[in-house]
Simulated scan of single mutants.
Amino acid sequence: MIDPTDPRAALAMTKTDTKARAAEAGKQFETVFLTQTMQEMLKNAGKGAIGSSNAEQTWNSFLAEAIAKKVADSGTTGIAQSVERMLTAYGGKP
């Protein structure tokens, strides 16, 4: 049990909370960045079976977001980790 009157415990909790928040902000940033990248890629991938209708544009936006989320969840690009390190280095209050 953590003693709430112990300043060292409060500081440790704050650091842990800040690190977790920085990690989440990094992951969110990576997902948004990759979604935009995937959307641009899909624009240039050629016309699909649906043609260039509104339905295809809507489908492509969902597809781009799903691909980006999978890539971000895998943690293989290093974008989220870089953002997390930057936020924690500067006192990270995302």
Results as ranks from 00 to 15, higher is better:
7 P>M: 02
66 A>N: 14
48 G>R: 01
50 I>P: 01
50 I>C: 06
79 I>H: 01
90 Y>K: 09
54 N>S: 15
92 G>A: 07
20 A>H: 06
36 Q>R: 12
45 A>V: 11
37 T>D: 09
28 Q>S: 13
31 T>F: 04
15 K>Q: 13
26 G>I: 00
16 T>A: 15
3 D>S: 05
42 L>Y: 04
16 T>D: 15
88 T>E: 07
73 D>Q: 07
62 F>M: 15
17 D>G: 14
3 D>G: 04
5 T>Y: 12
16 T>E: 15
73 D>Y: 03
37 T>K: 08
59 W>R: 13
79 I>D: 00
31 T>W: 07
4 P>M: 02
63 L>G: 05
46 G>D: 06
1 M>N: 06
76 T>H: 08
78 G>R: 01
64 A>H: 04
25 A>S: 04
74 S>Y: 01
43 K>N: 11
75 G>Y: 00
59 W>L: 11
28 Q>T: 12
25 A>N: 01
49 A>S: 12
92 G>H: 06
92 G>W: 00
53 S>D: 15
58 T>Y: 05
66 A>P: 05
31 T>A: 14
76 T>M: 09
16 T>Q: 13
71 V>I: 15
59 W>E: 02
51 G>R: 00
58 T>S: 14
11 L>N: 12
89 A>I: 03
66 A>Q: 13
71 V>E: 07
75 G>P: 07
89 A>C: 03
17 D>N: 13
64 A>N: 05
17 D>Y: 09
69 K>S: 09
79 I>P: 00
52 S>E: 15
67 I>G: 07
22 A>F: 05
18 T>C: 07
61 S>Y: 05
13 M>A: 13
10 A>N: 12
75 G>W: 03
92 G>L: 04
16 T>S: 13
24 E>R: 15
69 K>G: 03
4 P>R: 03
73 D>W: 00
36 Q>K: 15
31 T>C: 06
77 T>P: 09
73 D>P: 10
75 G>L: 01
71 V>W: 06
43 K>S: 09
21 R>E: 07
55 A>W: 08
90 Y>D: 11
93 K>Q: 14
78 G>F: 03
74 S>F: 05
7 P>V: 01
50 I>Y: 08
73 D>R: 04
42 L>A: 05
8 R>F: 10
45 A>F: 09
46 G>N: 05
16 T>C: 08
20 A>T: 13
16 T>L: 15
49 A>H: 06
24 E>Y: 12
54 N>M: 13
37 T>C: 14
53 S>T: 08
13 M>Y: 07
60 N>Y: 04
2 I>D: 11
22 A>V: 04
39 Q>R: 12
6 D>H: 09
82 S>G: 15
3 D>A: 06
32 V>A: 15
26 G>D: 01
67 I>W: 06
56 E>W: 03
48 G>T: 15
75 G>N: 04
13 M>S: 08
76 T>R: 11
18 T>H: 10
74 S>L: 10
90 Y>Q: 11
27 K>T: 11
48 G>Y: 05
63 L>C: 09
24 E>Q: 14
62 F>P: 01
46 G>V: 00
36 Q>H: 13
5 T>S: 14
27 K>F: 09
54 N>E: 14
71 V>K: 05
